[in-house]
């Protein structure tokens, strides 16, 4: 299995294809399987060298007690680039993966050719999204857990969520399975491993990446926001303040574009990466 040791932690990764480097960064509580499910690696690796990996605490990577702030995630990313011999890369980040991508572009611009972010919420601009707890991902999760008698609150609190999941029994997971399906139930169940960590608090720290820092990122940024994104204000801020940004909308999606509209998501990412890398788009014959 492809694993690499970084800072005494074993990270799980995959690399495919040849060409300019593209690194796909999954969301908080997700893992690299999301890229397999969207088929994006097969598509992008026709033209790029594509690397996916599991963030610390996620997927098949080790679970340390701490180090879940975006700046530490950037350190992990740069170490991964060094260990695998990757060059400066285009970073594609879903949700929190976009925070890591943008933080890398700010902190280590020489490692980043550009960032494609998907429906990202920035903890450093939390004031723009005061109703985040009511928004789809958290609101939906709250309803599912309420159906088995569990409360996770009106405000986003992942530490509470992880503790709640750890306490749930088989009967409660059966209720979740009935609502989310077996794959969703297994995903939720797997999050209990984060209950012994500080991930829930640390990932939602501003960690030195606020509106001021974001406004100074000069690398090209593609901001993909979902048609029914809960983060309209963030989207508008990026459009108004980033010096080098292109915007696009993923139709029909509501924060989970890679899963909710895989076809459009992959097509948009591929099209923008081609544009940024100067790869000509194939012309259809008349």
């Amino acid at each position: 299995m492809p694993y690499v040791e970084l800072d005494k932690l074993r990270f799980h990764y995959q690399t495919r294809g040849e060409g300019t480097d593209v690194i796909l960064i999954h969301a908080f509580t997700s893992n690299s399987s999301i890229w397999l499910l969207t088929n994006i690696v097969d598509e992008l690796s026709k033209e790029f060298r594509v690397t996916t990996y599991d963030l610390r605490g996620h997927g098949a990577t080790d679970v340390p007690q701490s180090g879940y702030e975006s700046s530490q995630m950037v350190d992990d990313l740069v170490q991964l680039q060094d260990a695998l011999g990757l060059g400066a890369a285009y970073l594609v980040g879903h949700s929190y993966g976009g925070v890591i991508g943008m933080h890398a572009a700010y902190k280590c611009p020489d490692r980043v050719l550009g960032v494609v972010l998907s429906d990202t919420y920035f903890p450093g601009m939390a004031e723009l999204e005061p109703n985040m707890g009511q928004a789809e991902p958290w609101g939906e999760l709250r309803e599912h857990l309420a159906a088995c008698g569990r409360e996770i609150g009106e405000t986003v609190d992942f530490s509470r969520l992880f503790r709640t999941i750890r306490e749930m029994d088989d009967n409660e997971f059966q209720v979740i399975k009935d609502r989310l399906g077996i794959v969703g139930a297994r995903w939720l169940s797997s999050l209990s491993k984060l209950s012994s960590t500080s991930a829930g608090e640390e990932a939602f720290q501003p960690d030195g990446l606020g509106s001021e820092q974001l406004s100074h990122i000069t690398q090209p940024v593609v901001a993909l926001y979902d048609e029914f994104s809960p983060f309209h204000a963030t989207c508008q801020f990026l459009k108004d303040h980033l010096p080098n940004v292109a915007m696009d909308v993923v139709p029909g999606a509501k924060h989970l574009a890679p899963l909710q509209n895989s076809t459009a998501f992959v097509s948009l990412v591929q099209g923008h990466l081609r544009r940024l890398a100067g790869i000509p788009t194939a012309v259809e014959p008349h």
Partner: peptide, 17 residues
């Protein structure tokens, strides 16, 4: 998923295997 207890990341690891 239902019987062997897979989570989605296990599918990735199985694919690699």
């Amino acid at each position: 998923f239902g019987e062997l207890g897979f989570a989605s990341i296990d599918a990735v690891v199985l694919g690699e295997t």
